[in-house]
């Protein structure tokens, strides 16, 4: 009951916010100092609720532990909406397990902020380097990563037909039974993507796609893995970074950036109020935005970064050359129910 009422309240608050929020002062930026490191070691652990691909998240955590021995990272990975559900349940019952939360659904953070669950904190690098539209003016969260939800295919499994080039191409009969797709009810990335694509292409496009015998999976990390298994030849949507990682492993997959545009999902991160390990949280939070971590995200994880010092791997199409479909979280939050309902109507689940 509280969930729904608060959602309604949030929607109103979002409307108000976007109308012209007061520029409340963000706290002064902080840097990683020996004092902070010492305090973090006293905490000993940092609990990170994340929606980043598990291997990437664990790798980042391991690098951190190597750099700051004495501080362990507990990685709790789930799909964005599951992370959201879990943190909601915990906050409602007064449980404070998590230090840092990070999901790929920007709507989540509007909600967190509205609920007052976030602790303002601005690492120096975010204050100095991040573009203004990729950080909260009140310093409660900032864009930790971004990734595209891309169309992609297995080159070796699609030899008999011309590969798709546009979104409309996917409706062609030759692709029937050969596609896999993730679910907006589970994945924040796909919710964002479904929102912008339904605006761009209309629901008729989804209705027709629903008749193409599409394999339905949950997380946006999963379609690339179905391509890797060879279970399907084309992914309608799914994380770009997982495709990059497959390419690095030598799996013959090819990304398609249709001329109509490709949806982008912004993954924010923030420190939770009442975090059980506040100093370790601050240290890890600052670490997440450091050039080193962001470069690792890019190299190993294939994630896009807002840190201008990060160098993209060769062979990857730079963001500047891709037509991006950006989503407005305050608009999206109003469409969530419609999207889910329409989706079930056309795809069965």
């Amino acid at each position: 009951m509280t969930w729904k009422t608060t959602l309604a309240a949030t929607t109103i608050a979002v409307a108000l916010l976007s109308g012209g929020a007061a520029w409340a002062a963000a706290p002064a930026a902080y840097d990683i100092t020996p004092d902070l490191i010492a305090a973090a070691k006293k905490d000993g652990t940092v609990v990170w609720y994340t929606a980043t691909d598990l291997t990437v998240a664990e790798k980042l955590a391991a690098e951190f532990e190597a750099e700051y021995p004495g501080v362990k990272v507990q990685v709790e990975r789930s799909g964005s909406e599951r992370v959201f559900q879990r943190i909601g349940q915990e906050q409602m019952s007064g449980i404070h397990n998590a230090d840092i939360i990070e999901t790929s659904d920007a709507v989540n953070f509007i909600y967190f902020k509205q609920q007052g669950w976030l602790e303002p904190a601005v690492p120096k690098i975010v204050a100095d380097e991040w573009p203004d539209d990729q950080k909260d003016p009140d310093g409660q969260f900032a864009a930790y990563r971004a990734h595209l939800s891309v169309m992609a295919y297995r080159t070796d499994l699609l030899k008999d037909v011309e590969p798709p080039k546009t979104w409309e191409d996917l409706l062609k009969p030759e692709y029937k039974g050969r596609m896999v797709k993730a679910h907006p009810g589970y994945s924040g990335t796909i919710m964002t993507a479904t929102g912008v694509l339904s605006n761009l292409l209309g629901w008729e496009w989804f209705e027709k796609l629903g008749q193409q015998d599409v394999m339905q999976v949950q997380s946006s990390t999963e379609p690339p893995k179905k391509l890797a298994e060879g279970e399907r030849a084309i992914q309608v949507d799914g994380n770009e970074y997982n495709i990059f990682r497959l390419q690095d492993q030598g799996v013959p997959v090819q990304i398609v950036y249709p001329p109509e545009g490709t949806p982008i999902a912004i993954g924010n991160a923030g420190i939770l109020k009442d975090a059980p390990h506040p100093d370790a949280a601050k240290l890890y939070y600052a670490y997440l935005y450091s050039t080193k971590a962001q470069q690792l995200n890019s190299d190993f994880g294939g994630l896009r970064s807002f840190n201008p010092d990060v160098q993209e791997k060769e062979g990857r199409t730079p963001l500047s050359q891709i037509k991006l479909l950006e989503s407005d979280p305050s608009e999206l939050i109003k469409q969530v129910q419609t999207i889910k309902q329409k989706y079930e109507q056309y795809f069965g689940t």
């Binding site: 959602l7 909406e81 559900q85």
Partner: peptide, 22 residues
């Protein structure tokens, strides 16, 4: 779910997706 249909338990589960319809 990959086959594109719900049974009652998965349907109930989907009702807990945000915002939950308890």
């Amino acid at each position: 779910l990959p086959a594109g249909f719900h049974v009652i338990t998965t349907k109930i589960w989907s009702l807990f997706q945000f915002p939950p319809q308890l």
